[in-house]
């Protein structure tokens, strides 16, 4: 089956669910860095794009389809870039959240421009025709098989994040998020905490990018751009910063509506999302997942 057929294929739903899982890994990376450690990053889409393009180019130009090799190479490149940026941002004195946001935003912008203009990267067309991946020489031949592959990796990574957040290191991440300076006075090596977390999140985003490439069969400049960067942050804001599941649910719901609404209200839908974001930030600063807690505390006040 050629990659073009994937988009025209009849198992449309499989595609959507697979994409939700891939974005799930991406949103985990934003939640781990911003939600848990307070690194306000707009750069996850850039690293997502790096992972995707690395996979796309290697798969099409070098004809390598083994998923472990593809993920491994995407990881190496993603981690290397993540390390460079985090060393630049965090190894010195404390920098503000806005500074981090601007630098990572610029990174996304650069990546999108580069993908758009560099012919090696396919310019505006991106890299089409990425073949199905293979595992141990056995080629996956359908969307549903790719879906199972993505599902397994998603579950493994989610368990990993869940484990880290609930370990003592999770508390360290939160200590840095809630008061960087205080954490330093306790003796935390704040730069190392931030660099370690950023690299971990770069790894997550590049794995997501790799899976995006093999499941969609196409990578394009928009996957590393400002729009996706902003969207990832939006998922975390809507779902609730500091919770692992809130952003995942927000992303899934938005993705499901996305495809429908883009057909029904193509011009109004982005505006609606913007309004939703504003309302959430003003009235529910801790996201939609904080609603149960708010109801609970209102009830407690009433019983008093």
């Amino acid at each position: 089956m050629s990659p073009v057929l994937i988009f025209a294929g009849n198992d449309y739903l499989t595609q959507i669910v697979t994409r939700i899982l891939v974005y799930g890994i991406l949103v985990l990376s934003v939640e781990m860095s911003w939600g848990q450690t307070g690194i306000f990053t707009f750069g996850q889409a850039a690293l997502f794009g790096v992972g995707g393009y690395a996979t796309g180019l290697i798969a099409t130009k070098a004809n390598i389809t083994d998923i472990f090799i593809l993920i491994g190479l995407a990881l190496i490149i993603g981690i290397a870039i993540g390390m460079l940026i985090s060393l630049f941002l965090f190894s010195g004195r404390r920098v503000g959240e806005l500074y981090v946001a601007l630098v990572t935003l610029a990174l996304s912008y650069i990546c999108e421009r580069l993908a758009n203009s560099w012919t090696f990267l396919g310019s505006g067309n991106g890299v089409p025709g990425i073949p199905y991946p293979s595992i141990f020489g056995h080629s996956l031949g359908s969307n549903i098989q790719v879906f199972y592959l993505v599902l397994v990796i998603f579950i493994l990574l989610m368990l990993l994040c869940f484990y880290i957040v609930n370990s003592q290191f999770g508390l360290t991440m939160n200590a840095v998020r809630d008061d960087e300076e205080r954490a330093e006075f306790f003796g935390y090596k704040r730069p190392r905490v931030q660099i370690f977390t950023f690299i971990l999140c770069a790894a997550l985003a590049s794995i997501a990018g790799c899976l995006f490439a093999v499941s969609e069969g196409l990578v394009s400049p928009s996957m590393s751009g400002l729009a996706l960067s902003t969207t990832t942050v939006l998922w975390v804001v809507l779902g609730g910063r500091g919770t692992l599941f809130g952003p995942l649910i927000a992303m899934a719901v938005l993705q499901i509506f996305n495809t429908e609404m883009q057909n029904v209200l193509p011009s109004l839908w982005p505006i609606l999302i913007g309004i939703m974001l504003l309302l959430t930030m003003v009235f529910l600063p801790k996201g939609l997942s904080s609603i149960p807690n708010i109801i609970k505390s209102k009830r407690e006040v009433k019983t008093l």
Binding site: S167, Q168, F169, A175, F186, F196
Partner: peptide
């Protein structure tokens, strides 16, 4: 735990 190594923290 402030002065413990990350790997010790993650293992716990």
């Amino acid at each position: 735990q402030a002065k413990e190594s990350f790997f010790k923290q993650i293992r716990s």
